[in-house]
Write a protein that binds this DNA or RNA. Structure first.
Lengths: 237, 237
DNA sequence: TACTGGACGATTGTCATACGTTCGGTCATG
DNA sequence: CATGACCGAACGTATGACAATCGTCCAGTA
């Protein structure tokens, strides 16, 4: 793949070409972020006019972004009423966690089966970072980010972009609960780290079944808390 | 479910409310259909102006639809160049089939585990229909539709809408190959039916493992042909 | 008082138009 | 033949407009 004597053109292209980031995608990122960090609460209406004032872009752009968010499953578009931030029912939450279980179990297997050694190193590094953040009591946001990084490494190593796409979408939707579940129980982050340690060690031992099992255990634990936390506060509907 | 003495309000609502089907969603359906039936070939550019002339709707609407198609993974939007019908590389095809394998194996298990008897009946009926269509040599489109019906029953019975959403998206993307793989080999449809018969019988025997295995076998067989067919004609890229 | 009916404002759905920017190809020129 | 200026096509974004719809408030009536 590499041509040693020549400068890496690909890298140049990615650096130069991207100065012109489509305005639309920037807005998309901002709004997605706002939803996932609960700056927009589930159930909240996203009125076009307000988004326009908020972002400074035209209605055209806003509307296109809302379509994308809808297709990603982060907002629901009610005819003649507009976009509303998705709020999950307990049932839907269970369904999502069930899917995560299946996909992440596969992710673990895939990673063990075919990740190069460099990916193992990266995984250990990302996990250590997660440990650090949790130990020194980072904010929920910090923890989530560190965790996302771990997943990122896993997805890279698994080398299946379709899996990445599906899981990313799933994670985004589950995140609408995860913030709640992580912050609800002070002991959860540490527990979560312990679960991931199981995973990392199984992976390093190249034990696919153990890794898969550890991942399933992790998702199940998250699911238990996530769903419990959601049944309790009775999110109106 | 039925209240014999009273008119069915739900039905009325679904009949009346839907007269005002958002124009946008109609266009979305039409374009999606056109892509999945290869009326738009993979790699083909979708020029906004042409779509406008073709559908009679405004550019605004067309663009919003294109955003949704992009988020669904059916078109790719190249900055400053516009929408292009996705064309899968052999690698991506393999990734998609791998995912299908995982998700459909789970689908089979879920169905066995929790589908009500009525779903079993529906499954048998849908499968019989598929048999019929294949036996009397229906068109590729007929076969695909009959098969989609089988999957629909399976997804209904599994009762996980998130799984349905993920698999639907996957199927849509795989369909960009499937038409080719089904029509390439005259014996394939019959073989495919045989594989599904395994599945149906395993399901009827309430044997989750067998059902899952049958499903995996089915997907693998489809994958083998689909990928082979795609490496052969060298789809330009 | 409670209910019906209608007016009104807010917001979405859709359209038409406009303009700067970028990409790709043509064509003249050295 | 290669280079660079030129030009048209198409996209990205913005603006303004108007009908249709939904929710709400208010007045009139039983």
């Amino acid at each position: 793949m590499d041509e040693p004597g020549r400068p890496d053109v690909t890298d140049l292209a990615s650096r130069i070409g991207r100065v012109a980031a489509p305005l639309r995608s920037q807005v998309l990122d901002v709004l997605r972020e706002a939803i996932l960090t609960m700056r927009f609460a589930p159930g909240q209406r996203l009125v076009e006019r307000e988004l326009i004032d908020m972002t400074g872009v035209s209605r055209t752009t806003i509307r296109e972004v809302l379509r994308e968010l809808a297709a990603e499953g982060l907002v629901r578009t009610i005819p003649q009423k507009g976009a509303v931030v998705v709020s999950l029912s307990a049932e839907e939450a269970e369904e999502l966690y069930e899917l995560r279980e299946v996909l992440e179990a596969h992710l673990a297997r895939r990673f063990v089966a075919q990740a190069p050694d460099s990916a193992l190193v990266a995984l250990r590094r990302a996990f250590t970072r997660l440990e650090d953040v949790v130990e020194r009591g980072g904010t929920t946001l910090d923890i989530v980010q560190a965790k996302d990084l771990v997943y990122d490494v896993l997805l890279d190593g698994a080398g299946n972009s379709a899996l990445r796409a599906s899981l990313s979408q799933l994670h985004a939707r589950v995140t609408l609960l995860r913030v709640g579940s992580l912050s609800s129980d002070p002991g959860r982050p540490a527990q979560s780290v312990a679960e991931m340690r199981e995973l990392v060690e199984a992976v390093e031992a190249r034990d696919a079944s153990a890794a898969s099992a550890a991942m399933v255990a992790h998702v199940r634990a998250a699911a238990r808390l996530g769903i419990a936390a959601m049944r309790a506060p009775a999110t109106a509907r």
